[in-house]
Amino acid sequence: MNKVVVKKIEDKEIVWFKNSNSYLVLEPIAAAILLKINKNNSLEEIKTWAFKKITAPKKVVKKFIEDIFLLYTVNNTLKKEVQNNSGTYKIPTKYYSEKYYSIHNCIFKIQFQTGFHLLKIHPIFAHLETESQNKFHFNYTIFDDKDFIVFFKNDAFIGKWNKNETHLFEGKLSMHLIIDIYKKPETDWMGVFHASAISNKKESLLFLGDSGNGKSTSLALLNANGFDCIADDFVPIDNKKNMYTYPAAMSIKKKSLKTLLPVYPELKNAVEYHFKKMNKTVRYLPPKNINYHLKLKCKALVFIKYNIEVELEINSISKIDAFQQLIPDSWISPLEKNVSVFLEWFLELPCYQLTYSNNLKMIETVTKIFNNDL
């Protein structure tokens, strides 16, 4: 069984390591050596081959090959995972809060043991809250066990996370929501991207960029100008390359209020949340026209950035630059078949850098991308 997958990207090679589910961009000669290692070629066989291919002193070539061997070994050493036994946890009988949410014809009951748990999850789904129900489809239970957050679903243990890894817990809970909303197991999802996504009802665009670059503000402006919001911050794509709606509210930072209040006056009275650890203050804006039946292909990746000094600039960027920006904030399925789909999906998409301060021109440019008018 292959322990690596290699795919050409411009003049480089993308290498995926199965056991660590990690990616590297390498020079072709390094990738070729990795493939030989993966085929169980001996060190001596590889050296004989490399001496003919690499113009360098033999001492340098030997060291290079040894470094590649080490890289291969490190990335294909399985990490020992702590075995979590659900029998060791006693599910609480009392909770700080119990909330019910109506999402795509399903009722979710979520039990929060503490106010901290409630603050991490409830605000982005508050617009989906419904009255207490005698019947529900899914019961999510969140509680503390010493230094860990524990997550159960329908009395089945899902996992536990150290309290300084709450983002991993939030990611797992979000993954289970899309599994339950769309009735598709985790094995059917290609990946989830820390991004925003919009559609023109026929195709979608994925907006990427560091936190604070303006993804959510751009999404909100586009949502107010005829485009549908697919997702903000958590964009799921299945292994058929279809993008799905994730119904969380858009996270609007304080600095964006001046721009958005004229088109979303409801933000003026929206509850403000302060997250000290992340040093941010936000309000939440429910997306317009949530449509759970959309299954859209992605037309392009757009790395977006608000810059007061730039009215509007859009340029194609290299696949290598795009890949290195995309991977760190993404969850990609660890299954080899899904990895292959992901790499095909990425390599067939155009990639742009869009920098702007003029909102109208940004909206016009996005329209041009959809209409192939760039």
Rank of each mutant, 00 (worst) to 15 (best):
Q324S: 08
K94L: 08
W16G: 02
T365C: 07
F275Q: 09
I308A: 14
Y264H: 12
L360I: 12
E129W: 10
K90D: 09
L35N: 11
K79S: 10
Y95D: 10
S174V: 00
S97A: 13
G115F: 11
I68R: 05
V5H: 05
V310A: 04
S132Q: 04
H274C: 11
Y284H: 15
K63N: 10
N239A: 11
E170G: 07
Y306L: 03
D233S: 10
E13W: 00
I46D: 01
C229N: 14
G115D: 15
A270R: 09
I198V: 14
N307L: 09
M278K: 10
K63V: 11
V150L: 03
L118P: 03
F69P: 04
V366E: 01
N372E: 13
F17N: 05
S22N: 13
H122R: 14
K7H: 05
G87C: 02
L354P: 03
P328N: 08
K368I: 09
T187G: 07
L173C: 04
L26M: 10
E364V: 03
D232I: 08
T55A: 12
C351E: 02
N225F: 09
M175N: 06
T93K: 13
F157L: 04
I37K: 03
S333Y: 06
N338G: 12
L219Q: 12
E129S: 15
A224W: 06
K146T: 11
V341W: 08
K277M: 12
F323M: 03
F116P: 01
K135H: 00
K8E: 15
N164R: 05
P262T: 07
L177P: 01
K53C: 07
H274V: 14
K183I: 02
V74D: 03
P57Y: 10
N38A: 13
K253T: 08
L294I: 10
S251A: 13
L261Q: 12
N200D: 14
L326G: 01
V60T: 12
W16M: 04
F275S: 11
F227P: 07
K201Q: 10
S102N: 13
L119K: 13
I363W: 06
Q133Y: 00
N105V: 04
L177K: 02
A156P: 00
K109H: 00
I332V: 13
K183R: 06
K59Q: 13
C229T: 15
S216Y: 04
Y356N: 04
L349G: 02
N105F: 09
D210E: 13
A224E: 14
E266P: 06
S218Y: 00
K337A: 13
W345H: 14
S340W: 05
H117G: 11
